[in-house]
């Protein structure tokens, strides 16, 4: 079951990546990133099953960071939406100098 769970985590990660790449809606891209995080968490939990509790502690921290990230990320999206009236990432390409 452990190996299968790892393969599941790999597939979830790949789906998350695909979502980030293929969608243009910033919020859904964000969701897909959460999906990737979950895939990683799953792998960590599997490892912690045989390698000790530290993996679970790490998952705990990842969740905390994910929460913080969600708060700030969503705030940014709100801010951007105020400015552009859209959350389509094609509409803003300011991420360069």
């Amino acid at each position: 079951m452990l190996t299968q769970a790892l393969v599941l985590s790999a597939l979830l990660f790949a789906l998350g990546t695909f979502g980030v790449l293929v969608r243009r809606n910033a919020i859904i891209m964000f969701l897909c990133i959460e999906l990737q995080l979950n895939a990683v968490n799953l792998a960590l939990v599997v490892f912690s099953r045989v390698a000790g509790i530290d993996g679970q502690v790490f998952v705990f921290f990842v969740m905390t960071v994910a929460a913080a990230e969600a708060a700030v990320g969503l705030a940014i999206i709100i801010s951007i939406f105020r400015h552009y009236e859209t959350v389509n990432v094609n509409s803003f390409n300011l991420l360069k100098w």
Partner: peptide, 8 residues
């Protein structure tokens, strides 16, 4: 997996 596909 199915739900993840749904998310995407």
């Amino acid at each position: 997996l199915g739900s993840a596909f749904g998310v995407v």
